[in-house]
Design a binder for these strands. Structure first.
Lengths: 217, 217
DNA sequence: CTATCTCGTGAAGTTAACTTCACAGAAATT
DNA sequence: AATTTCTGTGAAGTTAACTTCACGAGATAG
């Protein structure tokens, strides 16, 4: 289960506490704030993954609050609570960057559905920006490195000069450059006697590339 | 079936013609040459995918021939025919760049097995160096572009400024740069009313990225 | 009708990726 | 023992990728 924090901002104490309670009942970790200003302070100490904020509040309203948060933490999902469910309110909330909205009055289930939907979206997006994704894909995007992987996949184990000759590359230091890159990305390893071989991860990536090659051309 | 050309180089006319015949019986397109020198000329007109060359020949032998071919056409597979099946011969043939060897005398099936095995290896290697592979992987290796893909995958269709705000990028021209890249790689398209959406190919790539994200961490 | 927002181009400027070159110690050969 | 081959390092140099800036035409809103 996700144990990330959800922030609830509403000046109406009754509503705020009831939202907090509903969420806590569903095993979310929740922080309640009475004003947007207080929330901005609080975020500095603990960054929530989702914020539920009322549009109409004394002081800073949800609309003003939104860009401030999104600017510093674009990944945080924000659900706006709008007073009346006019189309205008909803549209303007979404246009100014809200990820979702709840029209007052809303039911317990509507709240939970919205929260869970947005957490799913967050999870989806985070998968594609996983650390290591960049490096791995960039590493695989080079034809020489893929050729090295292919060669190692077929022969199992190769020495440095064997690889260089096998690729027909004139400058051996170029091969060395790419081997270092492959090692840094944990696709290739070097054993006791200096021989290069695929790591388990490297072997998986070779499989992955073959599957991918079906889709390409 | 593969209809690529195989080249057979042997000064012994009987052996050469019998190899050619065996291969032609198996629906390969074959060119026979009596000398390595003649073969080098011939290659300029038609590049074979595999060469079977005798080690011992008057004039240029297989050992001298090998580096000349591999230098200009590193992808061509070369099977060396060695006179005696001593370990030395085999090892030195492989060390100088031969992909496989056949010890005289060899049987019809030994020849066919070796040829087919090497064509399989060739196919394997070619899959990983398919054109378009580079560009696609490089395109996917950028986090902003993956975020755009994720957003389009979730929302189905987005306008330019919606994407820009959704990513929390201050400079819209940066987003434009990456969108152009995605369009150039056929992952994203733009319809009549300027709205961006995933192409079929782009949607598949999003799926593949999710598969990959399982493999990564 | 003026002002703002949208969506885009193109030219620098910057950073990262890749290549090439010069050199060198360790290992294997002769 | 001398020499070649193997396996590297590190410093330029080059090219490609990305970012930023300046500008503008067309739509939309006030």
């Amino acid at each position: 289960m996700t144990t990330e924090t959800i922030m609830v901002i509403d000046d109406d104490q009754d509503l705020r506490e009831s939202i907090v309670e509903i969420l806590e009942d569903n095993n979310f970790s929740v922080i309640g704030c009475e004003t947007a200003e207080a929330a901005l302070q609080q975020i500095r100490f603990e960054v929530p993954c989702l914020i539920i904020v009322d549009n109409m509040m004394p002081g800073m309203g949800g609309m003003a609050f939104l860009p401030l948060v999104k600017n510093d933490y674009p990944k945080i999902k924000v659900i706006m609570i709008t007073a009346f469910s006019t189309v205008d309110n909803a549209v303007s909330a979404m246009k100014s960057g809200a990820d979702d909205y709840l029209a007052k009055p809303f039911k317990r289930d509507e709240l939970l559905v919205a929260v869970k939907r947005n957490l799913e979206v967050l999870k989806f997006e985070q998968q594609l920006s996983k650390p290591g994704m960049d490096e791995t894909l960039a590493c695989l995007s080079n034809p020489i490195r893929r050729q090295i992987l292919a060669a190692l996949s077929l022969k199992g184990e190769m020495r440095f000069m064997d690889i260089t000759r096998h690729l027909g590359v004139s400058d051996h230091t170029k091969v060395n450059f790419h081997l270092k890159n492959l090692k840094a990305n944990d696709l290739v390893s070097q054993d006791r006697e200096k021989a290069y071989r695929l790591t388990a991860h490297g072997a998986k990536m070779v499989d992955y590339l073959h599957v991918l090659s079906q889709e390409i051309s």
